[in-house]
């Protein structure tokens, strides 16, 4: 069980590094991406609840540490995301990949709005900030849809290497 947890934590760390690298490269253009939903969906649907929560919380702590929002905010939001993902899993019956992509997309949208409300520097009365929010939201959601199939396959591959492959949902 520990191997699965470490494998998915490793995948999340890699995704975090890539997200950070991409954001560094996009900064001179004034653009930024956020794909927090991808950190939650797959672990929540494939790991036992406690292990999933450990992976999600550790990922959230890493994201939160250098930022100015109160430490633990992402962890709290990700925990809600984890709970919603498990609820969706019990009610929606799609294949694992489709369900994970749909949940990641929806959670990302929710997380984006929540952080926009929480972040101390966001002002909805400023038209420039609204434009920035809209452009970055569209960019983030598009990028999430593009990389989700690759990232989910990568996570499945890691689980296969950890000798704990996921069962395809019916």
């Amino acid at each position: 069980m520990a191997a699965r947890t470490i494998a998915l934590l490793g995948a999340n760390l890699l995704l975090y590094g890539l997200m950070q690298g991409l954001n560094n490269a996009l900064t001179p253009l004034g653009l930024s991406i956020y794909i927090g939903g991808l950190f939650i969906a797959f672990p929540a649907l494939t790991l036992p609840p406690l292990n999933a929560l450990i992976v999600i919380l550790l990922s959230a702590f890493l994201i939160d540490a250098p930022l100015i929002i109160p430490f633990g905010t992402s962890a709290l939001l990700f925990s809600f995301g984890f709970y919603l993902a498990t609820l969706a899993e019990q009610r929606i019956h799609y294949s694992l990949k489709t369900l994970t992509a749909v949940i990641a997309f929806t959670l990302n949208l929710g997380l984006f709005f929540c952080i926009s409300l929480i972040a101390p520097e966001t002002s909805f009365s400023n038209p420039q900030q609204l434009k920035s929010l809209a452009i970055n939201l569209v960019l983030s959601q598009t990028l999430l849809l593009i990389i989700a199939p690759w990232f989910l396959s990568f996570q499945q591959l890691l689980l296969h290497w950890a000798k704990t492959p996921t069962k395809e949902r019916t």
């Binding site: 950070q20 900064t27 930024s32 930022l67 952080i115 972040a119 520097e121 966001t122």
Partner: peptide
């Protein structure tokens, strides 16, 4: 080492 410049925060590491 890191730039976080977006609608939420404006900071460098």
């Amino acid at each position: 080492t890191r730039r976080d410049i977006n609608q939420w925060w404006q900071q460098l590491t």
